[in-house]
Design a protein around this nucleic acid. Structure first.
Lengths: 198, 198
DNA sequence: CGCCGACTATGACAGCTGTCATAGTAGCGG
DNA sequence: CCGCTACTATGACAGCTGTCATAGTCGGCG
């Protein structure tokens, strides 16, 4: 949980992301973050002079980077990468977590958007950047699988949208049904978008 | 805003839904709800002895009912109903609101799920019911358009998932791009699921 | 040693939260 | 008129929030 190898600053960013995705931005207190990271409370104002907005913003940037990096790892793990296979891997990551760790935590970017889109502009912008850092690698991966360039971006947006929505529904229902459904129903459309060379 | 025709109780439920979808559950105070509904603060404990959980639960039930009822109205407004057309109408409702009223407010059910799934079980259950009250009519509408019974439910879940996710992304980006994308990309899949009679 | 910067510790601050207790008022049937 | 119910009004409560001010403690460098 509190990995001492990483510095206290990075630990707090990581902990903020974890608490946000569980309880939302508003319900996550600065003191909670410090305690969860096993970091001194006084370090908060030292490392994050911009206050809560800065901490939340960095947590979202971290989450976006993490999600984007995972995409490449999913592709590397597949024998013959297909769009439907990539989407299945993205979905499986969530079904695995829900089934092993429960439905308490969702996506931190979605949580921050829902909590702050109408109030804190900098956080909202950080959420948009995080989505971009996630959707971009997905679109590039699709293009690498033979999806025409002009369709890779829209399909990536569709994949992330469906996944985010299914995450929310799964948490409400406490059942991975919605995740399994979107993976199954979307696969033909995704795989059908590949243009075979030769 | 504060429709005097409806009683103060119903006004508070309505106001709660509006404030929740804008600021989230945690950031929405009981005093705010009473003020927004132009209802006396003392009425809160009178009409909602179950406290905030009851108020939020009723707001979600109202939202779910409202979304479900809209589906029938969308179908009635279409000359020849198709799955893609229904989804386009559901999406358009949101693009219209975002473009006219800004991106401050999203879906109250998603907001409550993100805020409470890990903490308040009754609210989480109310969110699940609200999703069911929304997805059910969508599935029945699909079935009425010629979609095989065993596919109507899953496709309805896919539609709601994609819409919810696109709403979140649109709010983060302050752009209806994601909504337009999911409507366009999903239409062929939806319309292709119709089995022609004869 | 002295000094300085990085980091930590702690207490205070005003403001807000949901909830409760208590009292008060209006309306109406009898 | 009483009495009752439905509803309103208001103040208090403990607990939490983000932020700030102030002081303290290291470690290393000259």
């Amino acid at each position: 949980m509190a990995d001492a190898r990483r510095g206290p600053r990075e630990r707090m960013v990581f902990s903020a992301a974890q608490l946000i995705r569980r309880d939302g931005v508003t319900a996550t207190g600065m003191r909670d973050v410090a305690a969860h990271a096993q970091a001194p409370r006084g370090s908060l104002q030292h490392y994050f002079p911009g206050g809560k907005e800065q901490l939340v913003g960095e947590a979202l940037a971290w989450a976006g980077r993490y999600a984007g990096d995972r995409v490449a790892r999913f592709c590397a793990g597949m024998a013959e990468p297909t769009p439907g296979g990539l989407f299945a891997a993205m979905v499986r990551q969530w079904t695995d977590e829900f089934e092993s760790a429960g439905f308490a935590a969702g996506c931190p970017v979605a949580a921050a958007t829902v909590d702050c889109a109408g109030s804190a502009a900098p956080v909202r912008a950080a959420a948009a950047d995080a989505f971009a850092a996630w959707t971009g690698p997905v679109a590039r991966a699709l293009a690498g699988m033979g999806v025409p360039a002009e369709r890779a971006g829209p399909l990536a947006t569709l994949m992330v949208s469906a996944l985010e929505g299914a995450i929310v529904i799964a948490r409400a229902e406490q059942d991975v049904r919605a995740l399994a459904t979107v993976a199954r129903e979307l696969a033909p459309l995704l795989d059908g978008s590949v243009v075979r060379a030769g």
